[in-house]
Write a protein that binds this DNA or RNA. Sequence first.
DNA 1: AAGTTCCAACAACCTGACTTGATGGGAGAT
DNA 2: ATCTCCCATCAAGTCAGGTTGTTGGAACTT
Lengths: 118, 118
Amino acid sequence: MVGLRGLERLPIQGELPGELPADRARLLLKALADPIRLEVIEALAGGERCVCDLTSELGLAQSKLSFHLKVLRDAGLLADRHSGRWVYYQLQPEALERLRGWLAALAASCTTPAPPCC
Amino acid sequence: MVGLRGLERLPIQGELPGELPADRARLLLKALADPIRLEVIEALAGGERCVCDLTSELGLAQSKLSFHLKVLRDAGLLADRHSGRWVYYQLQPEALERLRGWLAALAASCTTPAPPCC
DNA sequence: AAGTTCCAACAACCTGACTTGATGGGAGAT
DNA sequence: ATCTCCCATCAAGTCAGGTTGTTGGAACTT
């Protein structure tokens, strides 16, 4: 599997309190750090899409796409919606926003000069 | 090696024009998506540090830390500064900011409902 | 000069993530 | 009921990325 190593089942979906622990940030980053998943993300940036639609647009094997969609969904980056025999996926702006907040916190005071050292 | 696969030597360091192509974003994300590198990043969030300092604080083999520092540096996330026989590393807020911008663009219109499908 | 410390780079090994192909379930159509 | 389509899941194989130990250069000390 993928974005995991012992922390796959923390309560990911419902977590709005801006603060994002490092482990959670790592899960998001790991989910995003794959070329195919980035294509999926960018395809979904325009709005919700169904799986069959993504399959043909990205030219991926169904099994392959399904694998990557699961990784993104487990990370909380995507939400799925079932309708008939189709499944629609949507990018979750909250997840992106939390990651942005984490990045902003890092940048806040990183330019402090180094102490004398050793 | 790591954050690469054919695009390791694009001009990474000097690139302020807010726009961040997907390939570049992927390089940043891949560099960040590692537990050890996240520890390094967080250690540097407080300000510049020398390598020997990081080695002892994170309890890492010198070779291992050097490997990860190179990945982060190649991605443009870190800048190094040599002084005597010491090397100081600093987090680059511009890189973080560019990534934040990329994330913001993704979130902009991702909640558009799906077209009828198939 | 020789010795020591700090750090980067290399080769070989190894683990874990990704790929591939196949199987199975759910929902609609005939 | 049967068939078809859409999608998730599984097992097995592949391979890129990370680890480990070592080597070597640069800078300072004695």
